[in-house]
Design a protein around this nucleic acid. Structure first.
Length: 772
DNA sequence: CAGTGAGCGAGCTTCCGCTTGACTT
């Protein structure tokens, strides 16, 4: 047995470090936290100085037992968890659980996985920093107290099974407020004037610096340009430069992979995890932009050999984001000389992005030359401005340019090459075009742009961005959706050969792809929390508690005192809210029903957002209808509300039985002869006609007929299913292995599959919803 | 599977941050 046991958090890290340290050291991983607060409400003894009750979760017992065994046989245990608040706590929990003391254990830290860094760490051990551990305990307990006291308030006042927390509730708030901003946005249009010129055979464009809000003014302007000369007034050339972005952190990697590769936040993390495990990149959950000395040198060598000396510009970046703890390096390739890595196409593309970003960060600035030309319109004495940009030295742009999020601005700014001009040059005008442009509302959040804003507010950590986004969707607070835009007309005024032409064109606007939309529940919960728990919902709440955690870490504040001061006022608000607040449904009265005069409400009911007609007065029972997908109690109109009651619709008879259209738990359906036929996305249940309904029924019948492949003895039936061929027996379905022809299946073969499936029962998946 | 929305009420839900892995019906 080795004399030395080193414990790190990640198994991939353990493998690498073991190679550096030689045979006297055994390196093992604890897989993150090994203890956590007990599950229920008794995990914190509030009246006893917030005494926490920690347990070892079930899925950690095996790891802990192994570490216990190994640590007993070791002379020295080196606690090498990450150098941040959570890492310090992991070391402390390990030393508690493994029963270590100062004579048998040492705490070491490093924030880069390089041989010199590890050896240096071994030479400079320290003991566990209890203040830092206390800061972590304060963080953990505060989150539990907030989450486990707020959530039950929601169960009572809004709906069971909801949740609230320091991070998720603010994430939802961002989405809700953005949506309301968009709903309330009044788009304004103005005419943008662009003139096309030609000089020495080269074409370029210039813009009039003002925009005209009125069409008449734009027309007047065009008229005033007729039969004018266009003379260059001045040419100004300014040098400029562009700097490369810092190497990736988790957040910037997620943003850029979303912009350039279209990956979701969780997809990016899974793919990066694979690259990390294969040793291609450094750790992917990091908030640091720092590169190790080793990496700086390796990047420099690679840049010089691949692009030349003038492209190398080694530099260190410093982290600006709030609350960064910098336990790791930035995300970078482990070996810069590998321009390609990854087991599949997705991994290769992400690696390529990481490689380029890290390499570019160590390259020279790009030098550019910006030209601004002012052009006199002799007729009306106005001035047009043409601008162009030329790259005089590529620098880092040779390999990489950071992507952009969509913005409120039109960014069709001319940036092309300009002809060589000097003042006094007379230009040939090809056209002057006034185009109506509309102002745009702030864009809805993508997963990645939400992460960006959360990070800027210091809310959440690299390891939680992806899970937070999945939580708010799982709770039904937000949905990722794509929406088709609507058509909009705009006018184009063209001046060519002294003649003005007016045209109306159409464009698509408001189309959204994979954006986060708040649900009605998300809005109602946010409004409720904003009204009653303003403090927790404040965008700066996390930043202010972080400041206190820092004080605890530095020893200038006592952790139980901090919790004490936070908890009691908070708890009183919880109690008061439970007492005072009514149950909230987000109810909004749309008006009186045009036919029967009953009040019409939009609100959240037991089964989600709905419309209610009547309030139960005069013994008239209210009637209810569910909202359609994409509708919201915030914005639904009376007409849309009334349309919802046209369900179920009765269509013509088919084969002497009536057809009915309804919307059920699984979406719209057609009912005929006591059978149900699901309607696809392409049909609208509110407008579908009898002809189409018959088609849907016949299609389903045909699919069912084709479903059948083979019948075998013992009630085994081979069928075609949604996921390919399968066979069924006693209501159990069995998958047919790839490459096996379903027509050739035999009883023996099927029975062997049944036996194999039963011998290897499916493990319980924590992602599955529980049966009710 | 595809109706629900009254009321009673047992027992359950829930946080954030560290790590992977076993699932793809």
């Amino acid at each position: 047995m080795s004399k030395n046991l080193v414990i790190v958090e990640s198994p991939a890290k353990a493998k690498t470090i073991e190679k550096f340290l030689g045979e006297n050291y055994q390196v093992k991983s604890c897989f993150g936290h090994i203890r956590d607060l007990d599950k229920g409400d008794d995990a914190i003894d509030i009246s006893n100085g917030f005494k926490p009750k920690y347990i070892i979760p079930e899925d950690k017992t095996a790891v802990v037992n192994e570490l216990k065994k190994l640590s007993k046989g070791a002379d020295m245990v080196w606690l090498a968890s990450d150098e941040d608040r959570e890492g310090e706590a992991i070391s402390w929990h390990l030393s508690e659980v493994l029963g270590l003391d100062e004579t048998r254990s040492k705490r070491i830290v490093f924030h880069e996985i390089t041989k010199p860094a590890i050896l240096k760490a071994i030479e400079n051990p320290r003991s566990i920093d209890k203040n830092l551990v206390d800061a972590q305990q304060a963080r953990r307990l505060l989150d539990r107290l907030v989450g486990f006291e707020l959530s039950p308030v929601l169960w009572k006042k809004v709906k069971p099974s909801l949740s609230a927390g320091r991070v998720q509730s603010v994430a939802v708030r961002l989405i809700v407020e953005r949506e309301r901003e968009i709903q309330g946005f009044q788009s304004k249009s103005a005419f943008r004037i662009i003139a096309e010129f030609e000089f020495n055979g080269k074409k370029f464009s210039a813009e009039f610096p003002k925009r005209f809000e009125q069409k008449e003014d734009a027309l007047k302007f065009l008229e005033s340009c007729t039969s004018s000369d266009f003379i260059v007034n001045s040419v100004e050339v300014k040098p400029g430069f562009r700097k490369p972005a810092a190497p990736f952190t988790t957040s910037t990697l997620q943003q850029e992979a979303s912009r350039k590769l279209g990956y979701s936040v969780s997809q990016t993390m899974t793919i990066a995890q694979r690259l990390y495990e294969a040793g291609h990149i450094t750790y992917m959950r990091t908030d640091s932009v720092n590169l190790s000395e080793l990496a700086l040198n390796a990047a420099k060598d690679e840049i010089i050999s691949a692009y030349g000396k003038e492209f190398s510009n080694p530099k260190k970046f410093t982290t600006k984001s709030a609350g960064a703890q910098e336990a790791h390096e930035a995300i970078r390739p482990t070996y810069f000389e590998n321009h390609e890595a990854g087991a599949d196409d997705q991994q290769k593309r992400l690696y390529d992005l990481i490689w380029k970003r890290a390499i570019a960060s160590q390259m020279s600035d790009a030098r550019i030359e910006r030209t601004e030309v002012k052009i006199d319109i002799t007729k009306n004495r106005e001035i047009l401005v043409a601008s162009g940009e030329v790259i005089t030295f590529e620098g880092f742009l040779k390999v990489y340019l950071e992507g952009k999020d969509e913005s409120v601005e039109d960014d069709e700014q001319g940036s092309g090459l300009m002809p060589a001009l000097k003042s006094g040059d007379k230009l040939k005008n090809l056209s002057i075009i006034g185009t109506e442009r509309f102002s745009r509302a702030a864009p809805r959040y993508t997963e990645a742009s939400l992460v960006k804003d959360l990070e800027e507010l210091g809310i959440g950590r690299p390891s939680t961005y992806a899970p937070t986004i999945s939580t708010i969707q799982k709770r039904g607070y937000a949905e990722k959706e794509s929406r088709e835009g609507t058509k909009r007309n705009y006018e184009v005024l063209t001046l060519i050969d002294d003649k003005i032409k007016i045209e109306t064109k159409t464009e698509n606007t408001g189309a959204e792809k994979n954006k986060l939309f708040p649900t009605d529940i998300g809005m109602v919960v946010t409004d409720f929390l904003m009204k009653n728990f303003n403090h927790i919902m404040d965008y700066h709440f996390t930043a202010s508690v972080e400041k206190e955690f820092d004080e605890i870490a530095s020893g200038s504040q006592n952790w139980t005192k901090m919790l004490d001061e936070f908890y009691h006022p908070f708890h009183k608000t919880v109690d008061d809210t439970l007492k005072i607040s009514e149950k909230v449904t987000g109810e909004r009265e749309l008006g009186k029903h045009p036919e029967n005069g009953l009040p019409v409400f939009a609100k959240i009911g037991r089964f989600g957002p709905m419309i209610q007609v009547g309030d139960g007065a005069d013994e008239i029972k209210p009637v209810f209808a569910k909202l359609k997908k994409g509708q919201s109690i915030d914005t639904i109109t009376m007409d849309e509300a009334i349309e919802l009651f046209s369900m179920p619709r009765v269509l013509d008879e088919f084969e002497e039985k009536p057809m009915k259209v309804g919307i059920g738990r699984f979406g719209p359906y057609i009912q005929h002869n006591s059978k149900f036929y699901s309607m696809g996305k392409e049909d609208d249940p509110y407008t579908v006609n009898s002809e189409r309904a018959v088609e849907i029924i016949l299609n389903k019948r045909q699919a069912d007929a084709e479903k059948f492949i083979l019948e075998l003895p013992k009630d085994i039936i081979v069928l075609n299913g949604r996921f390919g061929p399968y066979f069924t027996q006693n209501k159990e379905n069995y998958k047919i292995p790839k490459g096996v022809d379903p027509k050739s299946l035999t009883l023996e073969y099927c029975e062997s599959i049944i036996k194999e499936t039963k011998d290897n029962p499916k493990p319980k998946s924590s992602f599955r919803g529980k049966k009710k």
